[in-house]
Simulated assay, not measured.
Amino acid sequence: MIKFSLKCSKDHRFDSWFQSADAYEKLASRGMIACAVCGDTDVSKTVMAPSVRPARTTEARLPKDAPRAHALAAPASPAEAAMAELRRRIEANSEYVGTDFARAARQMHEGEAPTRSIHGEAKPAEARKLIEDGVPILPLPFMPARKVN
């Protein structure tokens, strides 16, 4: 796997992983790589710095209470910052019901349970059925915290 820094013709910058450099070239030549921000398929590679990981022993030698650097924890763009804020608000103002989402949403819609803000997980077929039945739901643009690597 190889990670490339990319940009579209509108100067949006994003990273993406590819099986190989050849795989990137094949996909790019067919217009199958799209900007993560606007969907533009006029995408090219940008200058990249090599990614070198420190030896594992470096982290192990730090005191247990020493702060750890989490480069991925900080938003890299205004869009990522907005997404992080959206997630924070949803998680703070609604109840996570896990895989029981479809049942809980249907019960509230049918008046069998008190109405409250919830979020959770549903299989595509369950979500489709809720929408067909007029239950007001929408997909969230992030995975539940327990499913994040």
Results as ranks from 00 to 15, higher is better:
Lys129Phe: 02
Asp40Val: 09
Pro114Arg: 02
Ser77Leu: 04
Ala92Gly: 06
Ile90Trp: 01
Cys35Ile: 07
Phe18Leu: 08
Asn149Leu: 11
Lys123Ile: 15
Phe18Ile: 08
Ala113Gln: 09
Thr58Tyr: 10
Phe18Asn: 02
Lys123Gly: 08
Lys129Cys: 05
Pro141Val: 00
Ser94Gly: 04
Ala82Gln: 13
Ile118Leu: 06
Phe4Arg: 03
Lys64Leu: 01
Ala79Glu: 08
Glu25Trp: 03
Leu138Glu: 15
Glu121Gln: 15
Asp100Ile: 06
His12Ser: 08
Lys123Val: 14
Asp42Leu: 14
Ala28Asp: 06
Ile33Cys: 01
Asp100Asn: 05
Glu121Pro: 10
Lys10Met: 06
Ala73Arg: 06
Lys147Met: 12
Ala69Arg: 10
Phe101Cys: 02
Asp133Arg: 00
Lys10Val: 06
Arg106Lys: 08
Glu126Arg: 04
Arg56Val: 11
Arg87His: 06
Asn93Gly: 01
Pro141Cys: 00
Ile33Pro: 04
Glu25Asn: 03
Ala34Tyr: 00
Ala104Thr: 11
Arg146Gln: 14
Ser5Cys: 09
Gly98Asn: 01
Pro139Asn: 05
Leu138Asp: 15
Ala127Tyr: 09
Ala66Glu: 14
Ser94Asn: 03
Tyr24Ser: 02
Arg30Ile: 00
Lys26Cys: 05
Ser51Arg: 08
Ala127Cys: 04
Ala74Asn: 07
Ser44Cys: 13
Arg116Thr: 12
Thr58Ser: 12
Ala113Tyr: 02
Glu25Thr: 03
Pro54Phe: 07
Gly111Arg: 01
